[in-house]
Design a protein around this nucleic acid. Structure first.
Length: 586
DNA sequence: GCCGTTTTCGGCCCGACTGTTTTCAGTCG
């Protein structure tokens, strides 16, 4: 029996988030770099910050559970101890120590394009520059250009960068970045001499947000692609442009890097340009260990190129299996590829149906029939209709009476289908006390029950966890929709003991959803990975509110793949018969 | 500061572009 008391322990009250811890190490790296400290030490801190940011669980919770943090990649005894100190005191003494001689505010200046540690230090030591406003002043007075190594042009560029400084560097949702990149990709494809145009970088890795766009072009010599690129009318500004690479700014202030390589280097260039940086570094180290050199032009033994045409060729020569781009984050995929242990990732094609959709009955824009037809066109065997329930008034949530009418309508429609079924369900509110928004006799009418948190996002972790566990105790509940309720860039995930929720879900056979709405992508990739490690089954769903919206399920597939999720982990890769076998009934 | 199919010490990815330079430093990805 679960009580609030036995989920209220130290790990639940932790206030220092992983993001804050990562930021402290990032700042420490900045300060040490300003102080010209050992660059490898600096890199170690940055590396640790990156690892910390990608963790699925709060470090505070892992510490409370007695886990050894120095088993995490890139985190050794020294950093593990520093993390423990931060969790305990909220402070990183090494950071305070470094800030004694180098003001912490200087780390903000290092975020300005064109300013790195050397230039910031020069600005500070010579002109006592400590802020963006100081830079503007120094530029106006002409002092900036007088600094050694600066000059008129550089001073102008820096002043310009300061003037166009946005409050924080913006990242774009994956779906938005895709749309913004499309016209430029089409334009490049249409240019004479162009052989291939491929999107690489974080967009190819399908990261949930994208900071800039990388496009790889193969073309014959002298095709002048980068000159023609500048004539594309969607380009606002050219940041830099050389023989093989150009950086431009397009709509929404989005940065696009275009790289042109010869066809023979396509594979090596695609590998290099896809990243991530950490993955590339690790793979190049493997090359180095074999006495080879890997760069964007190929894999070399001495001056001889031994691979480069395709990614597969490069990987093979390094003794690795080809790694899907979604996994290239230096998070264990390289070891797995070396030992033939890469997971067989779920694919869009493997999905047999969709377990989350809405109709005009609640806040959708298509009728039952229209949704069914769209699902059949998609090749699905089933589509669950999961309109909102009465507590979600803003979405015209359904009460038992309206639901029962909908179920009758679904029954009638199903009579007309062959090889396809609409499933009766509802996106049922989990109320603050963990009870469901509908009585059991209504839940009993459904093919399965989907539960979700739509209000009271701010509960403390212990209560939020307890709320979900209580909902899981309802024998009708089969799945949990958008489990953390986060919205990218708008709402933080609800606080809960994620492992505990996963353990309970695994025990009871409740699936967690990977919601494909571009603003949600919930579970996120790292939680997908953690959940499946703990034996939880997932459903990848569109949460579509229109017929066309069914296609957003692919963004859910992307995140599941990034989370190492295999076909067998996903319930809606099953046939309807097999799916029915695992949906809960009392 | 981290890490180990050479290593518990001695390494630590690699190249493009810019602007400042008389041959390269700084920044970026």
């Amino acid at each position: 029996m679960e009580t609030p008391e036995n989920v209220t322990d130290a790990r639940m009250t932790a206030r220092v988030s992983n993001a804050e811890i990562a930021d402290k190490f990032e700042r420490l790296a900045d300060l040490l770099e300003l102080q010209d400290d050992n660059p490898f030490r600096v890199r170690a801190y940055r590396n640790a910050a990156r690892v910390i940011e990608g963790l699925p669980r709060p470090l505070a919770e892992m510490l409370a559970a007695g886990e050894d943090l120095d088993e995490l990649p890139g985190i050794g005894a020294a950093i593990a101890e520093k993390i423990a100190t931060i969790v305990k005191t909220g402070k990183l003494p090494a950071l305070a120590e470094a800030a004694k001689t180098t003001p912490l505010v200087l780390t903000d200046l290092m975020r300005i394009p064109g300013l790195g540690p050397k230039r910031v230090r020069e600005l500070y030591e010579t002109l006592d520059v400590k802020s963006a406003a100081d830079i503007t002043r120094a530029a106006k007075s002409g002092e900036l250009a007088q600094l050694p190594g600066f000059g008129e042009k550089l001073a102008g560029k820096i002043a310009d960068a300061v003037a166009h400084l946005s409050p924080e560097q913006k990242r774009f949702r994956l779906a938005d970045a895709e749309k913004l990149a499309a016209p430029l990709v089409e334009y490049l494809k249409g240019l004479a001499g162009v052989k291939r145009v491929v999107v690489a970088g974080s967009l190819r890795r399908r990261r949930e947000t994208v900071g800039d766009i990388d496009i790889l072009v193969t073309a014959g010599r002298g095709a002048g692609i980068l000159d023609k690129l500048k004539r594309f009318d969607g380009i606002r500004r050219v940041v830099s442009s050389g023989d093989t690479r150009a950086t431009v700014i397009v709509a929404m202030n989005l940065q696009v890097d275009v790289r042109v390589v010869p066809e023979a280097s396509f594979g090596a260039a695609l590998y290099y340009f896809t990243g991530s940086k950490a993955h590339n570094v690790a793979v190049r180290r493997i090359a180095q260990g074999k006495g080879l050199k890997l760069n964007e032009y190929g894999l070399y033994r001495g001056d001889t190129r031994i691979a480069g045409k395709s990614e597969d060729e490069v990987a093979k020569k390094l003794g690795l299996a080809w790694i899907p781009p979604e996994l290239r984050e230096d998070a264990g995929e390289i070891e797995a590829a070396a030992h033939g242990r890469l997971p067989e990732l779920v694919t869009l094609e493997a999905l047999r149906g969709d377990l989350h959709s809405h109709t005009t009955a609640s806040d959708g824009h298509a009728s039952l029939r229209e949704m069914a037809e769209a699902a059949r066109e998609q090749g699905y065997a089933y589509l669950a209709v999961t309109d909102h329930t009465r507590s979600t008034r803003i979405a015209h949530g359904l009460d038992p009476k309206r639901l029962s009418r909908q179920f009758a309508e679904i029954d009638a429609l199903n009579e007309t289908f062959k090889g396809f079924r609409l499933l009766k369900s509802a996106e049922t509110d989990i109320l603050e006390d963990g009870s469901l928004d509908l009585p059991d006799e209504v839940l009993a009418e459904m093919d399965f029950v989907l539960g979700t948190v739509h209000a009271h996002f701010e509960l403390p972790a212990a209560r939020q966890t307890q709320r979900l566990l209580k909902a899981f105790d309802n024998p009708y509940l089969s799945g949990l929709a958008h489990p953390t309720a986060r919205q990218i860039g708008e709402r933080e995930p609800i606080r809960l003991d994620f492992d505990r929720v996963c353990e309970a879900a695994a025990e009871r056979g409740i699936f967690l959803e990977v919601n494909g709405q571009p603003a949600r992508l919930d579970l996120d990739a790292s939680r997908c990975r953690r959940a499946t490690e703990l034996g939880v089954k997932l459903a990848i769903s569109s949460d579509s509110h229109s017929a066309a919206g069914l296609e957003t399920i692919r963004f859910g597939v992307d995140q599941a793949r990034r989370g190492w999720v295999g076909k067998k982990d996903v319930v809606n890769t099953r046939s309807l018969r097999s799916l029915r076998g695992i949906l809960r009934r009392p």
